[in-house]
Design a protein around this nucleic acid. Structure first.
Length: 560
RNA sequence: GUCCGGUUCGUCUAGGGGUUAGGACACCGCCCUUUCACGGCGGCAACACGGGUUCAAAUCCCGUACCGGAUACCA
């Protein structure tokens, strides 16, 4: 039997973190078993379902990389079938018409509606005490004649499943084990509303049957629904699929993680837009409620697929930990850490396309960074550059190309730069914000960095331009046009490379009788606008000779 | 109210009769260094509670507490 699973979100908002994890687990299970991963949009709640929501969910899934293996099913398209099935159950005597007038819903705000409904349910239950019977619907056993009369009078009716007096439903949950529920705990659930619209439990069962679903993997909030659905399966004479329920993902206070209360932080598109890598986020999500019983935490998609199993899913809820009013911890620290971990350890070949997209959207991308153009603009021959394309293992490449100064703005320079700055970055956004100075002359100065590294040492205002002069004389730049390679040493001058820069800066610092760090960090802020980054020698080199002179001489940072 | 689940560091988790209860994130400290959010080393920090069973319980059983879910003509 081929496994067929589905992810079935209802389009009443964006794709949130819990749904995303459900989608992930379904996807992993399908891939692990060689089965099919299907997608069904449960848009039967006409009042709440929206087209934007469907789009947003689809976007979220696309970002995460969970493409369905078959065409998307829209549940609302199957309403006629669902209706027909309800009628069939009615005709078979397995369901009955309930003429009880529908209790009109409060016109309460959509926001508070759910809570007030739940409160009402509790109130009702408390008031009823133990007296309440799930089998006391007055229309459960009315005669066909009476029913016909009422229909003739135009009385609207809902169709309810006729649950037997005695017995229980039972199923073996893939995660929670044996689940039993006495019929006395299950009401005669409504299959079809009095306005003719099918209800969730009916629709789900019908669609799952039609789609040939073999395993239903969904949130634990559906655990009790499952009993109702099994009743429908039985009434239909169809063997139920295997069910596996997932623990829920909670807010930091262990309460419900809701779109309304917690907003953006639970939306998938937030993470996409915040510069997260889908592979990193998937990895994070996989570890929320599942583990392979080992200490490894970083998993490639292939590893997740091969290691995933229902047995590894927990029964207890997990907390998605974040601090609402703390920008530094606006989302779960582990998610952020994992994203950073991916950024600094993945191969450059995998990272570059993401950086490219980010720089493009920030208008910082230049065609010169394209590898294809290297041959046209490169003046530094690079044999490593060719092996780069041939090989996917390029993690240690930067060390091999760091030997010679690279022309600013070329593909090789680009690779070196990305590799140098990524170590301290957390998201893709950092490449265009903190890393902006590497790609543009138009960058801002972080006030904290200016205060710490510049204004604290007023001497620097004169010394840094002097350092520029020193560079100029040592590296003899005046004969070369802006943007050219500083020097490869062939003209008799010193190459503008780390070792040489170090010698010059150290000599300069000693003359001034100052600490090296003060000069270096002053220069760091002048050159990059921030207080953190790679080794300053590397920064000098990748910012390049001409830009270094220009920025050291600039007074912009000094004028608040 | 009733039914169903759950409970190991702040968070994610490993461990399922004998462990100094392990790892990761976060936090703190030290080191490296020209800075740092990189890296290295270290620290803080947990078996909800009460009974049993057992030579031995975080682990098995019962109860309690707390948390969560469900209980809709929502999904």
């Amino acid at each position: 039997m081929t496994v067929r699973v589905r992810f079935a979100p209802s389009p009443t908002g964006y794709l949130h973190i819990g749904s995303a994890r459900t989608a992930l687990f379904n996807y992993l299970y399908a891939r692990h078993t060689g089965g099919k991963f299907l997608l069904r949009i449960e848009d039967t709640d006409l009042a709440r379902s929206t087209e934007e929501s469907t789009q947003s969910i689809l976007e979220g899934l696309e970002w995460l990389g969970f493409a369905p293996d078959e065409e998307i099913v829209f549940q609302s398209n199957n309403a006629d079938k669902h209706r027909a099935i309800a009628v069939k159950l009615l005709e078979e005597g397995k369901a009955y018409r309930d003429f009880t007038p529908k209790v009109s819903e409060q016109p309460a705000s959509a926001a508070g509606r759910e809570i007030s409904v739940k409160d009402a349910i509790k109130e009702r239950a408390r008031a009823a005490g133990d007296q309440k019977s799930m089998r006391d619907n007055p229309f459960r056993d009315i005669t066909e004649v009476e029913a016909e009369t009422r229909i003739a009078n135009g009385e609207p009716f809902a169709i309810r499943l006729k649950v037997a007096e005695n017995g229980k439903t039972a199923f073996e949950d893939g995660v929670y084990g044996l689940q039993e529920r006495d019929y006395a705990e299950t009401e005669d659930l409504v299959l079809l509303r009095s306005d003719g619209h099918p209800l969730y439990n009916l629709a789900v069962v019908c669609d799952d049957i039609e789609m040939g679903i073999t395993h239903v993997i969904r949130g634990q909030d559906h655990l009790t629904n499952t009993h109702k659905q099994i009743l429908i399966y039985r009434a239909l004479g169809v063997e139920p699929p295997i069910f596996a329920h997932l623990p829920l993902i909670m807010a930091p206070n262990k309460g419900k993680l809701s779109k309304r209360k917690h907003g953006e932080v639970v939306s998938m598109t937030t993470y996409r837009d915040a510069g997260f890598l889908a592979e990193a986020f998937r990895n994070f999500l996989a570890l929320l409620g599942w583990s392979a019983s080992e200490e490894q935490e970083i998993y490639s998609m292939d590893e997740l697929i091969s290691k995933f199993s229902l047995e590894g899913i927990h029964r207890s809820n997990a907390v998605f930990n974040f601090k609402e009013n703390d920008p530094r911890h606006w989302t779960d620290d582990k998610a952020m850490w994992m994203n950073a971990e991916y950024i600094r350890t993945m191969t450059l070949a995998d990272l570059i396309p993401h950086v490219k997209a980010e720089l493009k959207s920030a208008k910082l991308w230049r065609e010169e960074y394209e590898p294809d153009l290297r041959a046209v603009v490169a003046t530094v021959p690079s044999t490593e550059a060719q092996s780069f394309e041939a090989s996917t293992e390029i993690a240690d490449r930067p060390e091999t190309i760091a030997i010679e100064p690279l022309e600013v703005g070329t593909y090789d320079w680009f690779l070196r730069t990305i590799d140098a700055i990524r170590a301290r970055f957390f998201t893709l956004k950092d490449f265009s914000s903190q890393g902006r100075a590497y790609f543009s002359e138009d960058f801002d100065f972080d006030p904290a960095a200016v205060a710490k590294n510049l204004t604290k040492f007023p001497e620097l205002r004169e010394w840094l331009p002097q350092l520029a002069d020193r560079f100029e004389s040592e590296f003899q730049a005046e004969t070369r046009p802006v943007g050219s390679v500083p020097s490869d040493g062939s003209d008799g001058s010193l190459p503008f490379s780390e070792a040489n820069i170090e010698t010059v800066v150290k000599a300069f610092t000693e003359e001034k009788g100052f600490k090296l760090g003060v000069i270096m960090n002053g220069a760091r802020t002048m050159l990059t606008g921030v207080a953190v980054g790679p080794s300053m020698l590397t920064v000098f080199e990748i910012i390049g000779f001409e830009r270094t002179l220009m920025r050291l001489r600039s007074q912009v940072a000094w004028n608040d």
